[in-house]
Every structure is written in structure tokens, then in C-alpha cells.
Design a protein around this nucleic acid. Structure first.
Length: 455
RNA sequence: GGCGACGUAGCCAAGGGGUCAAAGGCGAGGGUCUGCAAAAUCCUUAUUCGUGGGUUCAAAUCCCACCGUCGCCUCCA
């Protein structure tokens, strides 16, 4: 039985989907006005991985991750480049998919974009207006927070507390500072759409409500995202959705912790971001996944070169074990399900069923890896490999050997070097070793053979 | 000011009333392997869980206070 920490209740709860065997899940995706950074990658990796775990556990998952392709920042960035917002958004959607692909993130079932849902957004806002949850003011439409009685339930705060807070900006045209924009009147030079309220564009929070209800229905199982979205983004989404539909919108809210740099949140506004593209180039996809998954998704984590090197080394231990197994037993090996496999599988499921405890899962991975390194039993090795491959369905590492068509040339050089070693021409042998190392080939000598690999 | 999370070995990080003298990783020290290396691998590495009280037969785990760190309350993953 899978259990999930639900932000709405603040408790770890048994996961029971609305429809047995099926899970509907929505994850807030990026606003596409530049390249994603490591902080953005966390929910993308973690929740994709969790979705795959749900599939591993037998659920059929409909997974939606949106792209916000219209907002102030996109407009600003497009204006700076003197191109259309569409062109800019298209570009960064494409860049997102490049990073996601390299990171081993599987595409979602649907990747909706805000601007493809403007008609639905207008209809949604009209519904809210008819039901008395929205009001029109100077070309804008606002959500009336006072009309929605459980406002604040998700973020566990009372509207009265927030009203007394000092940091809420006063906007003259709103009835209450907490009210938020559903539809924004167009300003000159901005992309806009026709609507019952005049030319304008969707507000900040409406898109997720609309796209999720269109693609997943008025109620669905899991909504996920970074914990910085809890308020106001998710609180507002929830308010407008439940106000319109008159029923519970989302059953389980999952929120990941922030990534920080030197004890400060990594964010575009602080300017301490590290691009995923750059992280992939420097540390590689496997190390980055290791980094993101080896800590519990709800905890804040620190990003630094030390942490990344540590993750790289840790992943290396798993890769080495896989190498050893492949060397010793070759490609194929018939295996039979037995107590050993059942027991390990049970332990893995127990760990991950508990609020997707990936650190615990890695503890098991390293335990079984040690098992593999200590044994010569071919049957045992084959079973361990089978388990690792099975679990890789949700871990998402790239175990493929970096094989290229110049491998044959490397083999020749390794042989020449060994010939040199045989005649004790160590100067020649060391030179070849050094040159190969410069080209990214690492050599290890042992008593009966020389093993090499691409770094 | 309000709300919330967290504080476990040199570092990272699970555990969250007894089976914990606390998983796993990184690092470090020692051994094996090697012509020498590198890499790999093996072994070792917390009587103790921020501090002080309390509850309990029993606490890292529950309660209270305090100290410290972070997040949200504004766009943010």
C-alpha cells in the first residue's frame, strides 16, 4: 500500500486512487522564457520517477505536465529579442525537451500549453462569474476570495492572518488584497485574445485549473510541484477549481523541497541558478539523477560541486557493479524467480511505498551492489542484474555502455601497450596509457587482463 | 509579525516509542591487486541522534521551552 504525504492534510496517507488501478496526475511545469535550472529539474525528475514507480506498482498513469507559454516574463523576453512570444516559447519548449531527454525524463501523457486553452479558460472564468466567485473591474476579472470559504486550507493559513500581514501589495482595483487575477486586460503591444471582458489574456493561476480539468476531469488524484508553489499558486488553483466544480478537486498534493546554494534558495530572481544543460555537461545525467533522488523529495537540498562529485562517485559504485556483472556473465542469462529475488523486491517496495523514500531505496541498491561485488555465483549475479534493471524502470539511469565505433582502435592501442609491458618497455606503456587517458580512456591492469573503459 | 519545515558521524543522508551500541553514500585510514600507478575491491570509521526539562517500564523517535538553519506570506520548481 503506497502512502503519500499530503500537503492538504499535513499527514502521510494511504494512497487510494479515484478509480482502482488508474492514477491521474498533474505536475506544474516550467514557464518557458529561458533554459531550466537544477531547481526546476527536481520536480521534473522526482515526479516522473514517482509516476514510473506507480506504473511499476501496476497502476496505469495519466501524467500531465504543462508549459506556461504566456506571462509577463515571456512577454518581456520576447520584446527584448523583438520576436513573438510564440517563437520564444517554442524555442524554450524545445530546449526543455532536450534537457529532459538527456536527464532520462519520460515525456508526459500530455504537455498542454496555456495558449492552446484560451477558449476553455474563458469558459471557466465565465462559469466562476455566473456562480458569483468572480467580479469584473476595469477590464480585469478577479477571483473573490471571500466567496470561497475554505480559502487557505491547502497552505494552512487563514485569510485573516494574511490580511494583517505587512507584505501584501495594495491594488486599488481589487476588493480585497487577496483576490487574484483570472483575466488581465490587454496592454498595448501584448498578445491578447478576445473575450466577453474585452481584449486580454489569462491570469496567473487559471491555466492549471483549466488544463487539468479538461485533460483529467473535474477531480483527479495527484497534483504535484515545488513547495514554493503552495501559496499562492496552488491555493488559488484549488479555490477556483472547487468554486467552479463544487466538489473536491485534488485528493493528494505532493510538494518537493527547494534546492539551495550556500543556504539560499536557487532561483532566477536571486540569480544563483545552475543550468541543467551545464550540470549535464559537467557531471552527466546519471550523477544528476543520483543527486536528485538520493535525498527525500520533500527535504531541502544543497547544490554544490562537492555534492555533485559525491553523487557521481556514488553512482560510479553502481555502474562498476554492473560492469563487473556484465563482464562475468555476459549478455544473457536465464534466471528463475526465487526467494532471494522476492525478498529484495519486497524490501524495495516497502521503502518506496513509504512516501517514495528514495534514499532508503538507494540504501538497498548499495546493499545489493555489495552483494554482487562479493560473490562469484553466476546465478546470483544474474539475479542481481535482473533486479537492478527492473528497478531502473523508475530510477532511470542510463546503464548503456558508451560504445563507439572507435572501440576497435582503443583495443589495438591497449594491446600494443601490453606488448610493451611484456618486454618491460614501461616508458612506451606509460606513454600510451597517458595519451589514452587524455582521450578519455581509463586503463586498469590486473594479473590476467587489462580492462579499459570510457570515462 | 503570521504559517510551516528542519537540526543524526569529518561531510551528505535514512530511521521517527523497544528488534537502533542508529541504514546507505562520500571522504579518510589500513589491506589486496599493479612493473609503478590509476581505477577497482575488501576492512575499519556515531555507547550516540541541536540544548535543557518532561511523559513512559522504555525516547533519536512523543510533549514543552530554548538555541540555530531554511522556506512561504511577492514572480518562483
Amino acid at each position: 500500500m503506497i502512502r503519500i504525504t499530503n500537503t492538504l492534510t499535513g499527514k502521510k496517507e494511504k494512497f487510494i486512487p479515484l478509480k482502482a488501478g488508474k492514477v491521474k496526475m498533474y505536475v506544474c511545469g516550467p514557464t518557458v522564457y529561458n533554459m531550466i535550472h537544477v531547481g526546476n529539474a527536481r520536480p521534473a525528475v522526482v515526479f516522473d520517477s514517482f509516476r514510473r514507480y506507480l506504473e511499476y506498482r501496476g497502476y496505469s498513469v495519466t501524467y500531465v505536465q504543462n508549459f506556461t507559454d504566456i506571462d509577463d516574463k515571456i512577454i518581456t523576453a520576447a520584446n527584448e529579442e523583438k520576436i513573438s512570444t510564440k517563437k520564444l516559447a517554442d524555442r524554450y519548449v524545445a530546449e526543455y525537451f532536450k534537457d529532459a531527454c538527456t536527464l532520462g525524463i519520460r515525456p508526459a501523457t500530455f504537455h498542454p500549453r496555456t495558449t492552446d486553452f484560451v477558449d476553455e479558460i474563458i469558459a471557466f472564468i465565465s462559469d466562476l462569474q455566473k456562480k458569483g466567485f468572480a467580479y469584473f473591474r476595469n477590464g480585469d476579472v478577479y477571483f473573490d476570495v471571500s466567496a470561497f470559504k475554505s480559502y487557505g486550507a491547502l497552505s494552512h493559513r487563514k485569510p485573516s492572518d494574511m490580511r494583517s500581514g505587512a507584505r501584501i501589495e495594495i491594488n486599488e482595483s481589487k476588493d480585497d488584497p487577496l483576490d487574484f487575477t483570472l483575466w488581465k486586460a490587454a496592454k498595448t503591444g501584448e498578445p491578447s485574445w478576445e473575450s466577453p471582458w474585452g481584449e486580454g489574456r489569462p491570469g496567473w493561476h487559471i491555466e492549471c485549473s483549466v488544463m487539468s480539468s479538461t485533460l483529467l476531469g473535474d477531480s483527479f488524484d495527484i497534483h504535484a510541484g515545488g513547495n514554493d508553489l503552495i501559496f499562492p499558486h496552488h491555493e488559488n488553483e484549488r479555490a477556483q477549481s472547487e468554486a467552479r466544480n463544487g466538489k473536491k478537486w485534488v485528493n493528494y498534493w505532493m510538494h518537493n523541497g527547494m534546492i539551495s546554494v550556500k543556504s539560499e534558495k536557487m532561483s532566477k530572481s536571486v540569480g544563483n541558478i545552475f543550468n541543467v544543460r551545464e550540470a549535464l555537461r559537467v557531471y552527466g545525467s546519471n550523477a544528476l539523477r543520483m543527486y536528485l533522488l538520493s535525498k527525500h523529495y520533500r527535504s531541502p537540498i544543497e547544490f554544490s560541486a562537492e555534492r555533485m562529485e559525491e553523487s557521481k562517485s556514488a553512482y560510479g559504485r553502481i555502474a562498476n557493479a554492473m560492469d563487473k556483472i556484465n563482464r562475468e556473465i555476459g549478455e544473457c542469462q536465464r534466471i528463475e524467480e526465487d526467494e532471494f529475488m522476492r525478498e529484495w523486491r519486497t524490501r524495495m517496495i516497502e521503502a518506496l511505498d513509504d512516501d517514495f523514500n528514495t534514499p532508503q531505496a538507494f540504501s538497498l541498491i548499495f546493499e545489493i551492489v555489495k552483494n554482487a561485488l562479493l560473490t562469484d555465483d553466476r546465478d546470483r549475479l544474474a539475479k542481481i542484474r535482473a533486479l537492478l534493471m527492473e528497478w531502473n524502470y523508475f530510477l532511470g539511469f542510463d546503464f548503456e555502455k558508451k560504445s563507439t565505433n572507435i572501440d576497435g582502435f582503443v583495443e589495438i592501442l591497449v594491446k600494443l601497450r601490453n606488448d610493451a609491458r611484456t618486454r618491460k618497455d614501461y616508458e612506451q606503456a606509460d606513454e600510451i596509457r597517458e595519451k589514452l587517458k587524455e582521450l578519455g580512456v581509463e586503463i586498469r591492469d590486473s594479473s590476467n587482463e587489462t580492462i579499459w573503459r570510457w570515462l
